[in-house]
């Protein structure tokens, strides 16, 4: 009997202590949450206000006939604009061009970027120098680089202008596209390479040594050991670059202005909107581009699985 009460007492006491402690702790926890929200609120507000609202507004505009040259004719036409755009030959040409540029540039950049990453990571001499040099294309204003390429390929003016005999390369479709892609690749390969270099740094030196002890050739070490370890970094780099390439605009604007059927979808949307002042059609294209990008991102995220950035913080050190 006495023993029972003796054991009972501390139990109730500790339960009470626990309850009291819980209340106090959740107070501290609430403080932490509040501080977290407070600190993030401004950033979240700006990001959402400047993207979410406009994109919804854009959807609203895309359901209207709305040409600033004829503001009186503004009316709700449902999916009319979509029918117009999706049956338009220019749209599909631009879409094809954009896809072509995206696929070719990203593929070439992946290969060149891997080589550049390897050089920047492994070079025995002038590592700082080569990294500095590689950052210049990344940092330079795209328009400046585009002008440099434009002048370079202009007959007579440029050092490349007469490279392929007579005729101006920037006035023919195929050569124009090739130059646009060259400019894109020049500009963004270093960025790709930097992302891949971060992946290279994740490959443990011992793993490569172990592989060569196991008799793997250089190529086998690359494909069987390094690529699998680098896969998350490669996917991140591909995702960023693919979506970035799909937005191609600056280079085309400067190099060809979209002449000779070299417009990308961004270029086409811009022309309809700012030059044509057709808000309805421009918005429709904006929404379609947004959907296309969302689809690309969705496919990548599916590929990523758990390796998607942000899915685990700091987990992939």
């Amino acid at each position: 009997m006495t023993a029972e009460t003796a054991t009972e007492k501390p139990t109730t006491h500790s339960v009470r202590a626990q309850r009291k402690a819980k209340a106090r702790i959740s107070e501290g926890k609430r403080q932490e949450r509040k501080l977290g929200w407070l600190l993030c609120a401004p950033a979240a507000f700006v990001m959402i206000a400047v993207t979410a609202y406009p994109i919804l507004y854009s959807v609203w505009l895309s359901f209207q006939r709305f040409d600033l040259k004829f503001p009186d004719q503004r009316e709700f036409i449902g999916l009319g604009n979509y029918a117009t755009v999706l049956t338009n030959e220019y749209w599909w040409t631009a879409f094809g061009i954009t896809t072509l540029i995206t696929v070719v540039t990203v593929a070439v950049e992946l290969v060149l970027g891997m080589a550049l990453a390897w050089i920047m990571f492994r070079t025995l001499v002038g590592r700082g120098l080569v990294r500095t040099a590689a950052l210049i294309p990344y940092g330079i204003v795209t328009v400046v680089a585009a002008f440099s390429w434009k002048f370079a390929w202009t007959p007579d003016t440029g050092y490349l202008g007469n490279l392929f005999g007579e005729g101006a390369p920037l006035t023919e479709r195929a050569s124009s596209l090739a130059i646009i892609m060259l400019a894109e690749i020049w500009k963004t390969t270093p960025f790709m390479a930097l992302l891949l270099m971060a992946g290279l740094a994740l490959v443990p030196e011992d793993l490569l040594k172990a592989a060569s002890m196991d008799g793997a050739t250089g190529w086998q070490r690359f494909t069987k050991v390094m690529l699998p370890v680098m896969k998350p970094a490669i996917l991140v780099a591909l995702l960023f670059r693919t979506l970035d390439a799909f937005r191609v605009f600056d280079n085309i604007y400067v190099l060809t202005g979209g002449a000779n059927n070299t417009s990308s979808v961004s270029m086409l949307a811009y022309n309809n909107l700012i030059r044509g002042l057709n808000l309805g059609i421009g918005s429709t294209m904006s929404v379609l581009i947004f959907i296309a990008v969302a689809i690309i991102a969705f496919i990548f995220v599916k590929l990523f699985g758990t390796a998607a950035p942000g899915s685990d913080e700091g987990g992939r050190r």
């Binding site: 949450r33 977290g36 990008v293 913080e313």
Partner: peptide, 30 residues
Amino acid sequence: LDFPGKKLLIGISLLIAMFPQVSLVSPLFE
């Protein structure tokens, strides 16, 4: 800090980093 909505914020910023800027041009213009 640990707070609910953290993942969401990371997700939003990732989305915006990949957002096609031209899609914002027409609504922002208007």
